[in-house]
């Protein structure tokens, strides 16, 4: 595929996504029910940690990792700011403001803006904390573990861009008996989160997390656009596999592909209805 064709497809993809976002928001304004947190155990537990933090008078610690608004991970930072907004809002009746940490200097204004919007109390300026990243993010992990002792948070929400340094942070949280909820856009960070965090999200759940915590229909509408694209992608891949297998077996025909696609759609609908 040459560059020009690729660019046309890219523009088409973005335009279709814009149309889907607006369509989904239009229909979701009235009909879309609130997502049940029970379906993702991590969110249920997160709500519990928020309650514990309020009762114990301890802060929550939220971290963007190295997700920066001046880098490729800008959408990750934007999605996590939305998640953190809802977490801080839920912890709003507590006495101690949550701490937000980042290793990207460009994300500091986003941290402070998120606290300013969601937290009504005082003591907001010092709650956004920057730790220089260093060549391998180890300085960030070291700074963070020191802060974990000073601030003594009840739980950590580590959602953003983390690499292997996440292991040090989660290990420290475990030793201090603090809960941990982790998700990363990096594969190494995701694997470590799965192994070491109390609760974990994987892959695109990073971007739909706000939909599970929020009452806003727009967040759920945006999450449903992701579901539509994912469904289409899965269907397309499944059809391509069927065509390839049928071609290799010498039984390729359009009617077979049609029936197989129909069967996949029925299975998909049944699966979605059961969820």
């Amino acid at each position: 595929m040459d560059d020009s064709t690729l660019q046309v497809y890219t523009i088409l993809f973005v335009v279709i996504t814009i149309v889907l976002v607006y369509t989904s928001r239009f229909f979701s304004a009235r009909r879309m029910p609130r997502l049940s947190q029970g379906r993702v155990p991590g969110f249920k537990r997160l709500s519990g940690w928020v309650g514990e933090a309020i009762e114990a008078g301890r802060p929550l610690h939220l971290s963007f990792g190295s997700a920066g608004i001046d880098a490729e991970s800008a959408p990750v930072a934007a999605a996590e700011a939305e998640l953190f907004y809802h977490v801080i809002k839920a912890a709003g009746s507590g006495d101690v403001a949550p701490v937000i940490s980042t290793s990207s200097a460009a994300t500091i204004p986003l941290c402070q803006d998120t606290i300013r919007r969601a937290w009504a109390g005082d003591e907001r300026r010092s709650r956004a904390q920057w730790f220089p990243q260093g060549p391998r993010s180890m300085a960030f992990a070291a700074g963070l573990t020191a802060t974990m002792q000073v601030e003594d948070p009840s739980a950590h929400v580590l959602a953003g861009s983390f690499g292997p340094e996440l292991a040090l942070i989660l290990d420290s949280a475990e030793r201090q008996g603090q809960g941990s909820f982790a998700v990363s856009d990096q594969l190494e960070g995701g694997a470590i989160a799965f192994a070491m965090a109390d609760e974990v999200l994987i892959g695109e759940q990073l971007f739909s997390a706000a939909a599970w915590l929020s009452h806003e229909s727009t967040a759920r509408a945006d999450a449903s656009v992701q579901d539509v694209w994912r469904g289409l992608l899965i269907a397309l891949m499944a059809i391509l596999v069927i065509i390839e297998v049928a071609g290799q077996l010498g039984i390729a025909s359009w009617s077979l592909v049609l029936w197989a696609a129909l069967a996949l759609v029925v299975i998909g609908v049944v699966f979605v209805r059961r969820r």
Partner: peptide, 18 residues
Amino acid sequence: ILLGIALGTVVTGVRVLL
């Protein structure tokens, strides 16, 4: 996982873009 993250990135990017 990377495909899922890419789709999420596009949707979030569009939200910011709009």
